[in-house]
Nucleic acid binder design. Structure first.
Lengths: 139, 139
DNA sequence: CATCGTTGTGTTTGCACCAACATATCGTAT
DNA sequence: ATACGATATGTTGGTGCAAACACAACGATG
């Protein structure tokens, strides 16, 4: 129940975005692709994953292709046609990357929270002693 | 002289983007504003700072306004007119934020490097054998 | 062998963001 | 009192990326 002045000028929170780049391409892996792979693992198909994540199939497909191309890793195995029209599931490498990136991200996020408290939180005005902008004037 | 296969599909490096948000606005502070404040401190004016950083004055001005508004902090003191047309310099609060954010950023970046080595670097493929794309029945 | 749902891929539309432009205001120095 | 250079702010145009749209290929299964 944190219920402490939510509209004050202070009360900010840190955010972090992480991604990897190869010398030949920016953003070959990151939060988006990580979440996508997890969703594929859960849902059993790329299409279902994109629907679950509310992102466009077109982009997700392109992202995967890019990641696999520039990392030289096959993340998912795909099958067209067949029962259900097709499917997609994580390879062993895919699972390894998901797990490793999850650990990486968790550690970094922990550092963000910790250092935010240590370095930034102290700057927040404790009590801005009421905005001194007595602007008055009727009507 | 690190000369170890620079065009291989591996050899990726981590990137991080950090920013703070208030409940009422996204991105009220981050690397961009941090660099801007430093530049203002160095250059002595907002205009000179934007020229040094190669960013548009318009955007920098809007960014500063947004940050000061939603954080409730006065980062820079400005003076219009006068000798040289005007000037801008960091307030005490401004300097405190620059320093604190610098420490915050350095710590997080160190964690990124460390955890990248610990969690991700080991996944790199030695040689994934060239993408084999057999041309299909062309026309 | 027709159907169905998914993978795979090209094309177009929309939108968010930023650079660029335009102008007003300000205050000291001359 | 004029000029100058910087702050302050509205407006517009271009650009890149992502959503939306469209459609071909595939292959188990009935």
């Amino acid at each position: 129940m944190t219920k402490k002045a939510d509209d004050a000028p202070g009360n900010i929170e840190p955010h972090v975005k992480l991604w990897f780049s190869s010398p030949r391409a920016e953003g070959v892996f990151g939060d988006g692709k990580w979440r996508l792979l997890q969703a594929i693992d859960r849902e059993g198909s790329l299409r279902a994953a994109t629907q679950a994540l509310q992102i466009s199939y077109r982009k997700a497909w392109g992202d995967l292709r890019k990641a696999e191309k520039f990392l030289g890793v096959r993340f998912i195995e795909r099958r067209r046609g067949g029962a259900g029209g097709g499917e997609a599931y994580l390879t062993k490498d895919g699972r390894a990357w998901v797990a490793a990136y999850g650990r990486f991200r968790a550690k970094v996020e922990a550092a963000v929270e910790r250092e935010f408290e240590a370095q930034i939180a102290g700057l927040q005005q404790p009590v801005p002693k009421e905005t001194r902008r007595r602007k008055r004037t009727a009507k």
